[in-house]
Design a protein around this nucleic acid. Structure first.
Lengths: 257, 257
DNA sequence: CTAATTAGTGTCAAATAAACACTTATTGTT
DNA sequence: AACAATAAGTGTTTATTTGACACTAATTAG
């Protein structure tokens, strides 16, 4: 028997949910009112949506549940990217009363498994219920101070997203079923935070085979109407046993050196 | 309060420790004797080294501790790659007596955060102590049935290694301080399981700037002696706050399309 | 019918990747 | 001392990919 203490921690999943809207990459946050014992006025805290993992759930299932409860969406792109387990992570939050409770209850420690989700933010109907009356979309450059170590988790997710988007054809998950080449380019430019050459972008996307051009075009725009495309899911849509999409091309999708 | 049960699970780290020896990629496993209540003879089980995360530890620290206890090595390449938390994962092991105990004690559930470690297997002096009298190096193609879901974890690690080795200069972690170009190529060929062109490999490695040629050469070989190289750690050796190496080049290290 | 706006298109130069075979330095053998 | 065996080391040519760059086309608003 070890002399070292190992009180079982709580285990949660937190979801970094990205959406893309009006040429802006957005993060879905939960606004919570937390009673402040000193001021007796509620503090407003923002946090990543998350929940404890239940006995009968595996991690992917828990993340999917959080997502579904919040957005009403199922079977969307969701990928585990990192587990966070600093014993002091709870204490990083602003709310001092929590810090005290952690000191007194080491078993209040929470280890969280973070997931990144990419959704078409138009499809997400924020659900009525315990979560959703507080859910808000926030542009990624206007993310406020978050509870716990959620800012760190978000920063990690953003870095992971930037890397993944250059290796795997996942950007589509953020767009509607039908989209124009310009929308797609704008998405990539937003995520990568740099301009891309229009002609080179089109060439690369079209040659890669991940786009299916549709005959349909924009209507009602006061300029040359753009063609719509859809994502070619045939390429390698391998949905794992938990219904999680995991798109991977055979070779590298190395978009922009 | 939720109607759903959330008994706190145990949280552990498991380490997939790779070594390279005699042109073979090897995995470091623990051999355990587990009393079998039925046969009253010990079953021999192999498992990934791992341990519960302690109260005062973060995840990286716990993984480093497991590694140090087993190999005596510190500050080596260690990277978290996935958390596994299927509630039935314990039950996947062969030993039926465990399965029963899990059914009776749902709190026996273990969520594990898996790490991949790359070490110069010559440097690892398997430590005397509770772990090491049972530690063995096994070629990756001869890995036996492992406890729990450790085979799945290992398979995932191998896939992750193959991907990472093509994007980041981490192969060096598996070699001695000084190595020849042929050793390096053999390592890459072993990991990627395909032949590489000698001249193209040399050119790419040398142009990438990750190698520092030494004046020293092999002695005592009955052929043209090879030059030794060492890894250029200056490139971007960013050791995080937990002493974990995290090598990343500025651009992509896209070695082999 | 003119202006404004965004879509859509091709070429050339530079960089990178892929294919390919012979010479060199050393030891062991005769 | 010559020779055989072995693995190290070295360049060139071709094909492919990338990056830079500017005009025409289709539509609506005024």
């Amino acid at each position: 028997m070890s002399i070292h203490a190992s009180v079982n921690p709580h285990v949660s999943t937190d979801c970094v949910i990205f959406g893309f809207n009006q040429d802006t990459l957005r993060l879905l946050l939960i606004r919570r009112n937390i009673p402040n014992k000193i001021t007796e006025v509620n503090d407003i805290h923002y946090a990543l949506p998350g929940d404890l993992v239940r006995d009968d759930e595996n991690l992917d299932t828990a993340a999917n549940r959080v997502l579904a409860e919040l957005t009403g969406l199922k079977g969307i792109y969701l990928e585990q990217f990192h587990a966070f387990g600093d014993p002091l992570r709870i204490a990083k939050q602003k709310d001092r009363s929590w810090l005290e409770s952690v000191r007194q209850n080491p078993e209040a420690r929470v280890i969280t498994v973070a997931y990144m989700a990419l959704i078409d933010s138009n499809k997400a109907v924020l659900q009525p219920g315990s979560f959703s009356k507080e859910a808000v979309w926030v542009p990624i450059h206007e993310v406020p101070e978050l509870a716990f170590d959620h800012n760190e988790i978000f920063e990690n997710a953003l870095i992971a997203l930037r890397e993944m988007v250059q290796l795997q054809p996942i950007g589509f998950e953020l767009l509607p079923e039908k989209f124009t080449m310009s929308q797609l380019q704008s998405l990539y430019e937003t995520i990568l935070e740099r301009d891309l050459d229009k002609r080179n972008f089109r060439r690369k996307m079209l040659n890669s085979g991940v786009l299916i051009p549709l005959s349909e075009k924009q209507i009602g725009v006061s300029n040359k109407p753009a063609r719509f495309y859809k994502f070619n899911r045939e390429i390698s849509d391998t949905r794992n046993e938990n219904g999680i999409l995991n798109l991977r091309m055979d070779g590298s999708f190395n978009l922009f050196g």
